[in-house]
């Protein structure tokens, strides 16, 4: 988003750690950092998301870096080395296909030549960034539609409701009026959860009863959003596995019904992807895109150990824009997707 000064600070730290003594000292600082972290956590329990993200990523990337460094310090770039590098990428959830492609790019013109660990990381980061750059596109609400209808879909437990809370907070901060349709009428207390977010953000929440028809509720919420002059309507939906035919049918119905009020609606359909998800995420994108007309992605839970490398494979295959990433449970823990940073974090450059 707009945290340029903070970000450069982090990058500086990453650079510093990376360039100083990447091989020898890397293992030792980790436990120290760990220990101080505990102390800090006790004294000052809340860290901001960037700190948490960085400390989290630092640990996991350290592993990745160790791997790469270990492979390349003393060796030439041969087939075996490439296979090992491919493994390192697979471990970051990039998937076999993408990992193979990136190692192939790496091998180009470099086979049997000596290559330094730094160089390998640079190529790795560049390759990942190359794939991700075209998909890093923010969600644009331009005011052409009133309300601009954003529907949020995804599998259970991905973080849809939390993401909606964060989105509402962001739009409210921009001075827009927001109505939220509590369309998850299935999960117990999903409506209450959204109401809490409504109170936190000052967004209006339109809800029905538990077990009510989701499409009817979406229709009512749309009408109300029009009447109360909202700039944005966010429609929450119940989590559903993409292989459940009946539930996907229901989702199609929600869309059909909103189109009765505005043939162009929903103007955006966001698919929320959990960073811990493996290769199934590709299938989630495929099915939700086909059935619900997904227009963009949000990746959540990047504050954990999961690296979300599947996003690289998704970007390569579907080219759907990645609008934002979730990096915590707090109201502001939604960041713009920065492909360079994502790539560098994977490569720990």
């Amino acid at each position: 988003m707009t945290e340029t000064p903070k970000k450069s600070g982090i990058m500086g730290r990453l650079f510093g750690r990376g360039t100083a003594t990447p091989v020898v000292e890397a293992p030792t600082p980790v436990p120290q950092a760990h220990a101080t972290e505990v102390a800090v956590a006790a004294a000052e329990p809340r860290k901001n998301w960037l700190q948490r993200l960085t400390s989290g990523l630092a640990k996991t990337s350290a592993k990745l870096t160790e791997g790469i460094t270990g492979i390349f310090t003393k060796r030439k770039l041969d087939a075996e080395t490439l296979a090992e590098l491919e493994d390192v990428l697979i471990q970051a959830d990039l998937g076999i296909e993408t990992a193979t492609r990136i190692t192939a790019a790496l091998a180009k013109n470099r086979l049997d030549k000596s290559i330094s660990p730094e160089e390998v990381r640079a190529v790795l980061a560049a390759e990942v960034e190359k794939v991700l750059t075209p998909v890093a596109r923010p969600l644009i609400v331009n005011g052409n539609h009133k309300p601009h209808v954003i529907m949020v879909v995804g599998v259970n437990g991905g973080g849809k409701t939390t993401t909606i809370g964060k989105l509402a907070s962001r739009y409210r901060a921009e001075g827009r009026s927001v109505t939220i349709a509590a369309g998850d009428t299935f999960r117990a207390a999903a409506i209450d959860q959204l109401k809490v977010w409504g109170e936190r953000t000052g967004a209006k929440v339109v809800s029905g009863k538990v077990g009510a028809d989701a499409s009817g509720l979406a229709f009512d919420a749309f009408k109300q959003a029009r009447e109360n002059g909202s700039d944005i309507l966010i429609i929450d939906t119940a989590g559903r596995l993409q292989n459940k035919q009946a539930l996907m049918d229901e989702l199609e119905k929600v869309i059909r019904v909103t189109r009765k009020l505005d043939p162009a609606a929903p103007h955006d359909v966001l698919l929320v992807l959990d960073a811990t998800t493996g290769q199934n995420a590709l299938n989630q994108v495929e099915v939700f895109r086909e059935r619900a007309g997904v227009t963009g992605l949000v990746m959540t839970k990047l504050d954990g150990t999961a690296r979300g490398g599947i996003l690289v494979a998704i970007a390569a295959k579907y080219g759907l824009p990645v609008h934002a990433v979730g990096v915590g449970e707090g109201i502001d823990d939604l960041a713009a997707f920065d492909p360079g940073e994502f790539a560098r974090t994977i490569a720990q450059l």
């Binding site: 996991t60 437990g157 811990t276 998800t277 493996g278 199934n280 150990t305």
Partner: peptide, 15 residues
């Protein structure tokens, strides 16, 4: 744990 988890499953389980 989510059965759809990818490579991160080992980190989570170990931790």
């Amino acid at each position: 744990a989510d059965a759809l988890t990818g490579q991160d499953a080992v980190n989570t389980a170990k931790a």
